[in-house]
Design a protein around this nucleic acid. Structure first.
Lengths: 227, 227
DNA sequence: GTAATTAGATAGTATTGCTATCATTTTTAA
DNA sequence: TTAAAAATGATAGCAATACTATCTAATTAC
């Protein structure tokens, strides 16, 4: 069983909301597959159109270009992880426990039961790991930012930051730690698979648990230490 | 005054060594300018050829494609930072002091006097900040890695890792911390300018010093804490 | 001074990244 | 229910990108 809830995304991300039509959902579904398999560079709207048996022109009616589609996908992920964290920390009182759940969500939220039938969260997480930073490493980052296209990420970081402040109000860099936990989770999952010398996570089935353990180890030292 | 020393780079990075000819050095010099100004996405060999008053075919005789040129540039940076750290820590005994110099080098090595006349280290650092991770976030990362195209980065991380182990032999993730310090330095310089909500570094003239202070703060807690 | 290397000039080709137009199908609203 | 509106499909086209190839001219090396 899967329930189709709606994820709320900045409408500057798309021309026409892909969530409300069959074709739109197809675009999302298949573009995740294709970017997951062959990477963002080789992905084109023409190839996508062919895969979903539609036309290039139709895809362009939903997204201005493939950069906007990538932004849509990563925003989707940011929103989704944020929502999961909200749900899973709802009854938790201890901020340290909250932070543990946050770390777990950053590393392996995609192992949760899927929320939306046409989005494969596990593949999407892999896209965020491999292509996520390309969403802001562009020449138009400031323009994109002023349109609110990174709001979901900033909200997520804001939320985590406030938990960090609960754990240790005197920690001086809560936002930096929050964004770094997110980036580190993704980086070290990537490194363990492709560039193992850049990490200490061994490439194994349980590298997710290892990354989770590492991030908790870092956080413990950073927040429970009076040095 | 500037002295032209030679940086030693894996010869898989290029077809013909750009360091040994006027045209080659011109390619490096001008491509740094252009990528710095307009970003890697809009950079093409045709535009570059026009700028240096040469031809596309000539540029292709040095580099297989623009991805290899980017790899060349980031390798150049990794080697250069590594060399600077070697020089500046040569007479330092205390590993904690060494780590301080490493952090300073990650953040602002480019403020040192330039080493090679046709490479603007400050612009190059900005390229590494904005485009560096694109060098390994590709579908061919494993192939590139097996050719040794990330060796300079891995060496750098290995070197920093051994200093970390000197400071605290029981720290469990020295390689991860080393690569994270490098990435964090770059990320937070970028965030402070473009996405300030993701960091606690204020956008000011002295954001480099602030990032340096932050990284030292993190390292202190991580390595001098028995929690 | 000749051979070898390097660079310039030019051309060509498949693919990318769009935009535009018109015809059809599907949806919606009176 | 039917006419209008909206969405999609079909097709075309075009400038730019990412190369490859070939031939000639200049430079350098022996």
């Amino acid at each position: 069983m899967s329930i189709d809830i709606r994820i709320n995304l900045n409408n500057e991300l798309y021309i026409k909301d892909p969530q409300i039509s069959k074709l739109g959902r197809n675009i999302i579904h298949k573009s995740i597959d294709m970017i997951y398999l062959a990477g963002f560079e080789s992905f084109t709207f023409r190839k996508l159109a062919k895969e979903i048996q539609s036309t290039e022109a139709s895809v362009y009616r939903y997204f201005k270009n493939k950069h906007m589609l990538l932004l849509y996908l990563v925003n989707w992920y940011w929103e989704w992880v944020g929502a999961l964290i909200e749900i899973n920390t709802l009854n938790i009182k201890d901020p340290k426990d909250k932070l543990g759940i946050i770390i777990q969500s950053f590393v392996s939220a995609s192992n949760q039961n899927p929320v939306i039938s046409y989005v494969d969260e596990s593949k999407l997480h892999n896209i965020v790991i491999a292509e996520g930073t390309k969403s802001y490493h562009t020449i138009q980052v400031d323009k994109d930012n002023s349109k609110g296209l990174f709001k979901s990420y900033k909200n997520l970081v804001g939320m985590v930051s406030s938990v960090i402040k609960e754990v240790n109000p005197s920690f001086e860099y809560p936002n930096a730690l929050a964004s770094n936990l997110f980036e580190m989770a993704n980086n070290h999952l990537f490194f363990s698979e492709h560039l193992p010398k850049l990490t200490n996570i061994k490439q194994k089935k349980n590298n997710e648990q290892e990354v989770e353990r590492m991030l908790n180890y870092f956080v413990d030292k950073l927040l429970s230490c009076s040095v």
